[in-house]
Simulated assay, not measured.
Amino acid sequence: MAYDQIEGSAAGLAARLDAELREAHPLTVLRAAHERFGARLALVSSFGAESAVLLHLASQVSPGIPILFLDTGMLFGQTLDYRRTLAARLGLSDVRDLRPAFADLAIQDPKADLWRTSVDDCCHIRKVLPLDRALAGFDGWITGRKRFHGGDRLSLPVVEVADGKVKFNPLANWTKVELDAYATEHDLPAHPLVAQGYASIGCWPCTQPSDDGRAGRWAGQEKTECGIHVARAPGVAPNVGGDI
């Protein structure tokens, strides 16, 4: 089947599911996603400041759901520790560490300082390409995005289509208050850097302390997304090679 046909088929399914689930509890959304896609469903997590809630919810549906974790090589040590601690705490049995391809780094970022001159290109080889490669084996995926993050996320649907795959945003409707209440109710451990003033946590060169949502990410720049949630032009398949 041609890529545009796959995209169209997925778009129709996503529209139907969004109509059914747009007001549903996140756990209901996750169960519907898992029932629909089974082993062809993955959850993408940064193991960042707000990740514990979605991971806890997912563990109740299936502790064996594949968790895709982008280990960019630029993460805080605290994030790597948190990834191990939280996965063990929640009994997540299939956490996959996605790393940038050696060839991409050797050609595009041999000194590991590409972030100084082009944060977009740095994100592309360290996040976008590794995730594209990993998602090639799945038909649906789950994110932790929420509307209260602002920006392009204000109109976030619960279910959408992205690059020929159905994409679920179970927490889209939840507020920060609801998120924090759930974490407290279930005694979920916080990322260690939250106590140091980090409300959103990514790679260390591009993350600063901030209590204003994602304001500490790429501070002072127009950039608000790393690229993995940026829509591609219709009919343009994911780039799973090594070129930027």
Results as ranks from 00 to 15, higher is better:
Y3D: 00
G8R: 13
A14G: 01
A14H: 02
E20C: 05
L21D: 01
R22H: 15
E23H: 12
E23A: 14
H25C: 07
H25G: 01
H25S: 09
P26L: 04
P26V: 03
R31Y: 04
G48Y: 02
A49M: 12
A49D: 05
A49E: 00
E50M: 02
L54H: 07
L54R: 12
L57K: 02
A58S: 13
V61T: 12
I67S: 01
L70P: 03
T72V: 10
G73T: 06
L75Q: 13
G77N: 04
G77H: 02
G77R: 11
G77Q: 05
T79K: 00
L80W: 03
A88T: 10
R89I: 00
R89E: 14
G91M: 06
L92F: 12
V95D: 09
D97G: 09
D97V: 15
L98H: 14
I107H: 10
D109T: 07
W115G: 06
D120H: 09
C122Q: 05
K127S: 12
K127I: 02
L129V: 06
P130A: 12
P130L: 13
L131M: 15
A134V: 05
G137Y: 08
R147I: 02
R147D: 03
R147N: 02
H149P: 01
S155Q: 11
V161G: 05
A162G: 02
K165R: 15
K165N: 01
K167Q: 09
F168Q: 11
N169D: 11
A172I: 03
V177I: 15
L179K: 07
L179V: 15
L179G: 08
D187P: 00
L188F: 12
H191Y: 14
A195W: 09
Y198R: 08
A199E: 13
W204Y: 11
P205I: 09
D211H: 11
D212P: 00
D212W: 00
G213A: 09
W218F: 11
T224L: 04
C226M: 04
C226P: 03
I228N: 06
V230D: 10
G235C: 12
V236Q: 15
G241K: 04
D243Q: 08
